[in-house]
Simulated assay, not measured.
Amino acid sequence: MNLEQGVEFTVSEGATASETVLDAVAAVERTDPNDLTPPLYSVVDPEALDAFVESLNDRTGRVEFVYRGHLVAVGGSGVISVRPQSSKASV
């Protein structure tokens, strides 16, 4: 996996989308998720993000936001893509 080009993670059972976003960003940056600042809630409401993903019964839909210089795309299928902000994300 070429971390400089980005990563794709899938929300696993028992995990939330917001937790998976933090794991994916930390993987790209090669750091611990607990060391990420500013906190995720400074750019997106984690509870709203989790509720959005959980509510997509038909598995369609997507939300994108920028966090720590990365374009984060969260798809209704539970796939989370983290790429450098200058890249186009695809989920």
Rank of each mutant, 00 (worst) to 15 (best):
N2A: 08
N2F: 06
N2L: 07
E4M: 10
V7E: 03
E8W: 12
E8D: 04
T10I: 05
T10A: 10
T10Q: 13
E13M: 09
G14E: 03
G14S: 02
A15K: 15
T16P: 01
A17V: 04
A17I: 03
S18V: 01
S18F: 06
E19Q: 11
T20C: 12
T20F: 03
T20Y: 03
T20E: 02
V21I: 05
L22F: 02
D23C: 08
D23L: 10
A24Y: 06
A26G: 02
A27D: 02
V28I: 04
V28E: 03
E29H: 11
E29V: 00
E29W: 08
R30F: 00
T31Y: 07
T31V: 02
D32C: 10
N34A: 14
N34K: 15
L36E: 01
L36N: 00
T37Y: 15
P38T: 02
P38R: 09
P38Y: 07
P39Y: 12
Y41W: 12
Y41H: 14
V44Y: 13
V44P: 05
D45Q: 14
D45S: 13
P46F: 04
E47N: 13
A48G: 07
A48K: 15
L49M: 08
L49V: 01
L49H: 05
A51N: 09
A51Q: 14
A51R: 15
V53H: 03
E54D: 13
E54C: 11
S55M: 11
S55A: 14
L56D: 05
N57K: 15
D58L: 13
D58A: 12
R59M: 04
T60D: 07
R62M: 08
R62N: 10
V63A: 07
V63N: 08
E64R: 15
E64F: 10
E64P: 08
F65N: 07
V66G: 06
R68E: 04
R68G: 01
G69Q: 10
G69S: 10
G69M: 04
G69Y: 04
H70N: 09
V72W: 04
V72P: 00
V72Q: 08
A73G: 07
G76T: 00
G76V: 01
G76R: 14
S77P: 00
G78T: 03
V79H: 11
I80T: 01
S81E: 06
R83K: 12
R83P: 00
P84V: 04
P84R: 14
P84N: 12
Q85H: 09
S87P: 00
K88N: 06
S90N: 11
S90A: 07
